[in-house]
């Protein structure tokens, strides 16, 4: 028997469509960014976030009331939402930005998520946000922390294990830190950001992919949320790292020593 007092969990999982990690990144000729005309997929850390939400439901059963995925991105980002829905999210929100618009920055994204969470109340109120610790395209690694700050919630970043006690309304999170791990106990509501070792995301099964097509996706705009995605940073130039010049072969030790001297290396 479940005590009726315990509020069931509503989980929000923000996901981002980003250049697939297997793609070899190339800087565009104008040097304003990278070539985006390549394979995109869900940011791997976000995939882990969706997986964790679905596993929480598998563990807590009815303790999880809803799992909602949200993305902020161009029209094609809806494919990413379909993947999240196929993995087990119940519904989704797409905050759509024009295809040509610049990518929103972490603060813009955090504000949009903040507005979205504020919007919900009563039954639909979000208790737990699970999101990637960073997106592999810009590697900023800031959104989760900013969101927790805006909301005034606790945060458990770089999670490698998450246990939630619905009745006590608290979570115990194992965090990856330099040289080891740290276990923290947090009160809900909470923002968790995922690290690589948290779990291994499942495949989307065909029946679930088909079901996902019928799940609702709510479309919103920046204006609906009263946020502005205009970038605050200006990108001056994007360049590739210098090409590594290949080594050369020497025939003898003497030659090696001579080469080293030429290059400015001398015995101390």
């Amino acid at each position: 028997m479940r005590p009726s007092a315990a509020r069931l969990l509503n989980i929000l999982v923000p996901v981002k469509r980003s250049v697939d990690y297997a793609v070899k990144i190339r800087v565009n000729p104008q040097q304003t960014g990278v070539d985006l005309n390549v394979k995109h997929s869900m940011n791997p850390f976000d995939e882990i976030a969706v997986e964790e939400a679905v596993r929480l439901r598998e563990r807590l059963k009815d303790g999880v009331k809803s799992i909602k995925a949200v993305t902020i991105g161009p029209p094609k980002a809806s494919e990413t939402l379909r993947t999240a829905l196929a993995m087990g999210a119940d519904s989704a929100i797409h905050v759509e930005i024009p295809e040509s618009a610049p990518a929103p920055e972490p603060l813009g994204v955090a504000k949009a998520l903040h507005a979205l969470i504020q919007r919900g109340d009563g039954e639909g109120k979000v208790d737990l946000v699970i999101m990637g610790k960073q997106a592999i395209d810009d590697d900023a690694g800031q959104t989760g922390q900013m969101l927790a700050g805006l909301l005034g919630w606790g945060q458990a970043t770089f999670a490698s294990k998450v246990q939630v006690d619905v009745e006590k309304r608290e979570a115990v999170v194992l965090r990856e830190i330099d040289g080891g791990s740290e276990e923290i106990r947090c009160r809900l509501p909470l923002v968790v950001t995922t690290d690589l070792r948290l779990n291994e995301p499942r495949y989307a099964s065909l029946p679930n992919i088909m079901k996902a097509k019928k799940k609702p996706i709510e479309k919103l705009t920046a204006a609906d949320l009263g946020v502005d995605f205009t970038p605050r940073l200006e990108t001056l130039k994007v360049t590739e790292p210098p090409v590594r010049v290949g080594g050369g072969k020497v025939e003898s030790v003497d030659e090696l020593v001579a080469k080293l001297k030429d290059a400015g290396f001398t015995a101390a």
């Binding site: 297997a22 997929s41 869900m42 196929a86 989307a204 099964s205 065909l206 029946p207």
Partner: peptide
């Protein structure tokens, strides 16, 4: 078929 999976990204 009973079921199956469709790869969602190059890793899968």
């Amino acid at each position: 078929i009973l079921s199956g999976v469709l790869s969602q990204n190059p890793a899968q």
